Amino acid sequence: MMDKSHISKAELWAYISKTADPDTIRKVELWKDSSEYDKELFSQITAIYLNTKEYPVSVEDAKNRFLRYPRNTKQKTVSKVYKLLKYAAMIAIIVTAAYTYQQFSESTSQLISEETSFGENKQLKLPDGSVVWLNASTLLTYKGNTPRTISLEGEAFFEVAKDTAHPFTVTTSDGLKIEALGTSFNVKSYSNTSIVETKLLTGKVAITSDKYLKERVLLAPDEKVIFDRNSKQFFKQDMVKREGRIAWREGKIEFENQSFREIANDLYVQYQVKLVFKNDEVANSKFTGVFDKNTPIREILEILKTSKEFDYHLITATDEWVIK
């Protein structure tokens, strides 16, 4: 005859959770029909299982923690119930902690997005203490648990908090990666333009690209690097004094010896107006100037005309300015 006092908590858990093998099922059912059957113990383990099986986390560790405690069947019922309640409380704490940890892990790994619309600027502080200014029509994304790994579409200025153990990186849609430590720099990477531009004000950055660069490009303060999307070439240059101001942060539109076509892209992200060129000579003409962001587009065009003669008119139906 089998010794029913050898029924273990592990066997009861397996039976209640429907994971027991045929021999264990038979053993538990014989025990339930015997004088050794402990109804309170069976009910407690059943209640614990029913209250933990719906959690979206594994309760295996909780179960094992529970099953490690020895059971003395000779103790008084009050003592036995007290211990079972204590163990049940421990399992509830373990399961709740596991669930909370999972929820926290999911929230910290979620993708966080910061975005600006046409003509809008925004300043934000990242969890690592770095400060970012977003220019108009810009999208910045990062995961909550890696705020020093940034993806950028548009233009942003960064003041990076120092953390030598965790480099700060900004990646563009072209796969260009700008890596910095304690640094202030500007990255311009709009999808509708032919260039990606990085300007360094303080500190040091390295630009890398698995696709376009064999060696990294290092920048010192007051230097910039331009990546031409058409030619796939990089050009490293010294910045002129005025470029170090990052005019858009001051609410201005500034261009230094830029083609009219390039200026048109800047006007689009600020005003959401499209300039259509019917004259390549005019489109490639270069201009230097600075305007407040609230300057009407017609006024900007009139001022540019003083340097290069051209005609323009607005097509109201499509909200396009035709330049010829």
Rank of each mutant, 00 (worst) to 15 (best):
A10Q: 14
A98T: 15
W31V: 01
R229I: 02
R216L: 00
K204V: 01
R68L: 13
Y15N: 08
D3I: 02
H166I: 00
E256A: 00
L176W: 02
I226F: 00
I253E: 10
L67K: 06
S107A: 15
Q75S: 13
S184V: 04
P70D: 02
T202M: 00
A247M: 01
T193W: 05
G154F: 03
L140E: 12
A156H: 07
A136M: 07
R71Y: 15
Q258Y: 04
V78S: 09
K125Q: 12
P296D: 05
D238T: 06
N64L: 15
A136G: 06
I178H: 05
Y271T: 01
A62V: 11
L134C: 03
G175E: 06
F255Y: 11
T164V: 10
N186A: 02
R229K: 15
L301V: 07
L85Q: 15
K308Q: 14
K125T: 14
R242H: 11
E250M: 08
K86A: 01
K86Y: 04
V276F: 09
D228T: 03
S113A: 15
A156Q: 12
L201R: 13
L140Y: 03
W13D: 05
A161H: 11
T164F: 06
E197A: 01
S173A: 13
I48K: 09
S58R: 04
V273N: 07
G244I: 09
E281N: 09
D292N: 15
T116V: 07
T183R: 04
W133H: 13
I226D: 00
K27H: 10
Q237F: 06
I303Y: 02
I150G: 03
N284Q: 14
L267Y: 08
I45Y: 08
V196Y: 01
E243S: 13
K125P: 00
D38R: 15
Y87K: 13
L218H: 02
K236R: 12
T138E: 12
T318A: 04
Y212G: 04
T198S: 13
V132D: 08
R229E: 04
I263P: 04
R216W: 00
N51W: 01
D238H: 10
L126Q: 01
A317N: 13
T141Y: 04
D174T: 14
T24N: 04
F234G: 10
Y312K: 07
L314Y: 14
